[in-house]
Design a protein around this nucleic acid. Sequence first.
DNA 1: GTGAAAGCGCTAACAA
DNA 2: TTGTTAGCGCTTTCAC
Lengths: 343, 343
Amino acid sequence: MKSNKDVTIYDVANALKISPSTVSRGLKDHPHIRKETIKKIKATAHEMGYQRNKFASNLRQKHTNTIGVVVPKLNSYFMATVIAGMEKVTNQHGYGLIISQSQESGKQEISCVTTLFNSRVDGLLVSLAFDTKNIDHFNVLLNKNIPVVFFDRVSECSGCMSVVIDNYKAGYEATYHLIDQGCKRIVHLTGNLLRNVYADRFRGYKQALADNGILFDQKMVIISDLNEQAGIDTAKKILNMKSRPDGIFTANDTSAVATIVELGKAGIKIPDEIAVVGFNNEPISKVVQPNLTTVDYPAREIGEIAATSLINKLTSSRSDNLSIIVLKHSLIVRESSLKNKKS
Amino acid sequence: MKSNKDVTIYDVANALKISPSTVSRGLKDHPHIRKETIKKIKATAHEMGYQRNKFASNLRQKHTNTIGVVVPKLNSYFMATVIAGMEKVTNQHGYGLIISQSQESGKQEISCVTTLFNSRVDGLLVSLAFDTKNIDHFNVLLNKNIPVVFFDRVSECSGCMSVVIDNYKAGYEATYHLIDQGCKRIVHLTGNLLRNVYADRFRGYKQALADNGILFDQKMVIISDLNEQAGIDTAKKILNMKSRPDGIFTANDTSAVATIVELGKAGIKIPDEIAVVGFNNEPISKVVQPNLTTVDYPAREIGEIAATSLINKLTSSRSDNLSIIVLKHSLIVRESSLKNKKS
DNA sequence: GTGAAAGCGCTAACAA
DNA sequence: TTGTTAGCGCTTTCAC
């Protein structure tokens, strides 16, 4: 087991009686090297168990072919799908991915970014944490011309790209649909309004109300973590309201589902008494009874496009100046919001 | 924006009129350096925006302080929690994590392992893909004394550690519970029996039947991908059986839930006509109606322990010879299996 | 307690 | 088409 010593290009070069640089070039199909030589080099390299030493190579080349990803949490179908999309694209282009979770904490996000920066990633793909206040922690990267692409939870940032859907429009459509079904008192359960996704959906909600002559009431807006517990709490809060709402628009499916379940336990009929619309089209939306009306979000596509944009920035010198890419969403109507059964 | 050039220890050394080696030592609190010097070094380094170059350092030191993780898929609550546990431990010890998904494909698993190996990870944390036939692809690492720790989906492997639960016992308990509720014809929906988790649960299922005088019937065992579609297919298959089962034990929650939903659509009463037990205690198990009886799996703990074991192997020279760690699971009984309502 | 110097393995400018 | 050579930035042995 003579396994401790790594085989280097020098070893290969010696075996072949040629120079290390030729080996180096041959290994990467340099056009100036003769075909046969390349074949010979690759053959013996393989045979000898040669393995490129990335560190030496990175040290020389000043780039790592590695892309960092910072996401709030991994445990959603949505995020896993986004990342699968990114992996596909980056692998095709010879990049690796380092994934890290901020756990929805701005503080942890900063430490993720720092760690990734210290790992000298070539670029960063980011979806912001719930309570990230500002994005100064990305300046270290930006100052070094390391491109940052935001997706989903994005932020104003000169020189950064963003990949999103039209959350305003989606919020508008969701609320409009509820109104269309006859709802007049619609609760909006949302997250931290610092985040574009929630702020925009909220704006859409308000506008839809306004356009239909429904007075906006701040007491109908519930800000939360949008997790399971938030859904349960919301249900309880609703049960205690003097005049109950007849519709709920939630900014994600997790909390919508929890609300439905909890409301169901209290004997409330969904959608007859209260109609519900969620957001994201997670698989769970098809499990809950009644099935959840929700907004479909092109997760895989978002991942692919964010990764592609980043790689473009990395490889082409020309700086694409389109800074925001907006993808298409769609409202998926299921039973949880259908008051007029036969519509 | 004079940002292209990195600050090196040489720059710091020059600024301080001392040697680079002293700076290098000072930065890592070498005991032979005077306290004040250390303080001065750190101060100016920070001030100048110095940042250690990992590649140079790795190149010298032959290790990367990075741990690779290979999982089948990211998109489950279970996996996300496992990984959160790993991150916590590894970060505490100054290690980074590179996560990659095999997408349940043995072929992709091989490529993940190779990529990680080429990235010179110091160790590997692995849960096997569905259809991984053998584990020869880990030999490259093992031959170089790079430790591999398996968790959840493990495999016989001399010199590797494994972190698991007692799947045999869990399968036994789940099946026993069903029998206890009066079930006599129990379908077992499971995954590829190559994987210990499924094989062991299956053994437990068979033993529980045997211990209760129920004849094992191969036709009652359905092998599948255990995804949503598998649940739907299983439900359809069951609906077409001449003599219907009165219980189902599924090897994960996703498929259990899909089965319940599909069976529900066909008007089957759960648990009265068919009782169901799942596995994993995913959040979805508390959403489906009726709530799913399932086996709770200490996900976070598994992650923490697997990571801790790996780091121990990395840091201590003595080779711990305990090769399998078994964690505690527990059966969580909910409505989906409760035939005797008031038990 | 600090410095000098060699070298980790690879790449690329320049030379041939 | 191939070889020579000079580092990339850091660590560490040996010397003082």
